[in-house]
Amino acid sequence: MGTEHDHHHDHHSHDDHDHSEPPADVALRVKALETLLTRRGYVAAEALDAVVDMFETKVGPRNGARVVARAWTDPAYRQRLLETPTAAIAEFGFINRQGEHMRVVENTPQVHNVVVCTLCSCYPWPVLGLPPVWYKSSAYRSRVVIEPRAVLAEFGLLLPNDVEVRVWDSTAELRYMVLPERPIGTEGMPEDALTSLVTRDSMIGTGVAHAPGQASTR
């Protein structure tokens, strides 16, 4: 039986509801529908290409990293980001779908924040792009609310017992981004260089920002 991780089609018999023809591979089904909708004038291939390109190359966690680095270097901006997050993020031009009502939650030495959507896959697209598969998986969504420390440990993040772990379940149209702590040893680093220390996971809360010199992953 597949899980939400199984992107390869291991289902064979569940899609045979009421059609005499056997169902085709999902890629063929999608292609057939695209062709029909295109011929009929509902969609245009180049518009679909542009949507895909936007999420593959333009909208993604590098946007959020710029916001975080600004907040680390500009106290007035940090204040605006925490108090009026949607407007503060819009200063970069990052304002669009799934970012209409942004909330920014700040990590401190006392509080570590982590974001989930237990009911579906809500995620702040304008600052983080589309979510990774694990964020949408039943494993993450079921477990991070009941055993956040065990989940964070799987990401390599071990938190002391005296740090409060605060989980944000995105049940409405508010979209959450974590403002990670600025790594030590980055005093005097310029905003551009700081941006490269901000990982996607540090803005979800399943990671922390890199220390200077640490290889950038995730």
Partner: peptide, 22 residues
Amino acid sequence: PIEIERDEPVFHERWEGRVFAM
């Protein structure tokens, strides 16, 4: 366990992007 994929693409297969865009 959480299955974490390193350097994960936005869409794993072309049809996924087409579905999303459509």
